[in-house]
Simulated scan of single mutants.
Amino acid sequence: MAHIQFVDELVREYLLYRGFNSTVKAFDTDLKADKDKGFRVDKIIEQILHYINVSDLNGLKEYWSHLDSLVFSKLEIHVQPAVRKMEYSLYKLYLVVAAQSTGGVRNEKVAEFLAKMLPELQGQNEWRDWFMLPYIQKPEENTSFSLYFTRAWQDSVLVSLHNLLATVFQCMPQPTLTSYESDAALVKRLQDEVSALRGKTQKQSVEKTSPIGHQSRLAAYSERLSGPLPLVDDFCAAPAEPLDSGAREAKGLRGLLRQMGGSPVMGRRAARSQSQN
């Protein structure tokens, strides 16, 4: 949502143009104390990490409550468990960073967190082992906490937080002033499409009504009709080989009969006529 900063500049410029100097001062003061960071995800994560690194539990809880009231509380019910899981992951990251602090600050910050969060976390199974954290000398080697001390888990928490915030901010309803750029782009695209369709329609109408195009089509049709028509011989493809072979076979049979002294059929007919006589 980088366009938010541009809209802020437009509002400030308008206020100066109208001469609302006191309003401009109040506007600048509010921008400096803006907890939403112009809805920039990287700036919000940077602020959360600041509270975690300095072990400021009150600041972390207050900032998350602000995000919850502004954004997360307006989400659908089935998304709320994911938001709560992300909140608890940040609390665990807070404890991991506090446990890695040097000196006596480590146990002090961890114990302070558990004491303040006891009413909220007591009775939840996933937090039962965390109350033993102040009494473990090397929690990074303990099987219950070794995963949370890895760089991979810590990075996955930040990536999940980034994706959650980016998705939520993208789906938030935008005021009319912030959607001017997308509306202008939509109008420009529609105008280009209308111009392209109008040009295509005009081109087609010119081609249909043009006398040159009509004469060229008539000339092509006349040229096709004036040419000689091809003659087709229906018997050109008839095979001649079977007839020639049949004639040769008949001729050979007659020669064979002459050599044998006549046809046996004719001989039987002659003998039958003599016996009858």
Rank of each mutant, 00 (worst) to 15 (best):
A2N: 13
I4N: 13
Q5N: 11
F6G: 09
F6R: 08
F6H: 08
V11K: 02
R12Q: 11
Y14F: 14
L15D: 11
L16V: 01
L16S: 05
Y17W: 03
G19Q: 03
G19T: 05
G19E: 06
F20C: 11
N21K: 03
N21T: 14
S22T: 11
S22E: 12
L31D: 00
D34N: 13
K37P: 04
K37F: 04
G38H: 06
V41N: 10
D42Y: 08
K43R: 12
K43N: 10
I44Q: 13
E46K: 02
I48T: 08
L49T: 09
L49S: 06
V54W: 01
V54M: 00
S55P: 06
D56C: 05
N58I: 04
E62F: 02
E62V: 15
L67F: 05
L67R: 10
D68Q: 09
D68G: 14
S73G: 12
S73F: 01
K74W: 00
K74S: 14
E76P: 07
V79H: 13
P81L: 08
A82Y: 07
R84H: 08
R84P: 00
Y88N: 13
S89T: 15
L93W: 02
A98Y: 00
S101W: 03
T102Y: 12
G103M: 11
V105G: 13
E108P: 04
K109T: 11
A111F: 03
E112M: 01
F113S: 12
L114I: 09
L118K: 08
L118D: 11
Q122W: 08
Q122I: 01
Q122A: 08
